[in-house]
């Protein structure tokens, strides 16, 4: 095992004989002339509108709701899906789940097995951030998001996020995220382009994705 490691490293070093000895990684110039999006503040009207438009473009339904409406909108959406069992991860904001019938609410205690998750009708979560230009949600397992399987196995996902979590660009989002925990970037419902390169929604991940932006 270590023999393989030593040999590969030795081969790599021998292959790089043309790199002068004093050169350090930072000596190889990298021009970051591309846009970082940091000039557009998170959560402003323009950024949120772009996010709504771009995510909708991928087949998710997205709408903005006021803080006061949020709880009823969450309940209304889940009811419209006919969801009898709804997974609500730990530390999901209480006012947002207050209008759900108590009997419908399921926690991820135990935790649930993969089969249990498969039997759940829907999951409702928060998010860590969102990216306007690409129409992307980012989940980091933080409060109200649950573990990764919780937003994967159930067939319907309702995500509630605050307008100030919506940043303009990919660089801005990455700078806000902690890579040490597992992250999932979600841009629309599960899809495939594997047949004649035509994009169709609905393969293994949630086939329905709905997003509420609270502002």
């Amino acid at each position: 095992m270590n023999a393989a490691r030593d040999e590969i490293l030795a081969r790599v070093r021998a292959a790089l004989a043309d790199v002068p000895e004093p050169e350090r990684p930072a000596d190889v110039p990298v021009a970051r002339q591309y846009a970082t999006g940091a000039d557009a503040p998170a959560g402003v009207q323009e950024t949120v509108s772009l996010f709504v438009e771009r995510l909708a473009d991928y087949g998710a339904s997205v709408r903005t709701v006021s803080p006061a409406q949020t709880g009823t909108e969450v309940a209304k959406t889940l009811a419209s899906w006919g969801a009898e069992q709804v997974l609500v991860p730990r530390r999901f904001p209480a006012p947002w789940s207050a209008h759900l019938p108590a009997a419908a609410v399921l926690g991820d205690e135990g935790p649930l097995s993969a089969d249990d998750l498969d039997a759940v009708d829907a999951v409702v979560t928060t998010a860590a951030a969102a990216i306007a230009v690409t129409g992307t949600l980012v989940l980091d397992g933080g409060p109200g998001q649950g573990r990764r399987a919780a937003t994967l196995v159930p067939d319907r996902h309702l995500c509630v996020l605050r307008a100030e979590q919506v940043v303009a660009s990919v660089p801005e989002a990455l700078s806000r995220l902690d890579p040490l925990g597992p992250l999932t970037f979600v841009s629309g419902p599960s899809a495939t382009s594997d047949i004649e390169l035509e994009r169709v929604a609905g393969v293994h991940g949630p086939r329905t994705l709905e997003v509420l932006v609270v502002r």
């Binding site: 991928y58 129409g135 399987a149 990919v170 925990g181 597992p182 992250l183 970037f185 979600v186 841009s187």
Partner: peptide, 25 residues
Amino acid sequence: LPRSSTGERMNPYTSTWTGIEDGDG
């Protein structure tokens, strides 16, 4: 990558992970 590959602004799912995570995965 996504724009060059599938011609999407972003692909539906990107996963990142660092080693193992207690209680997740």
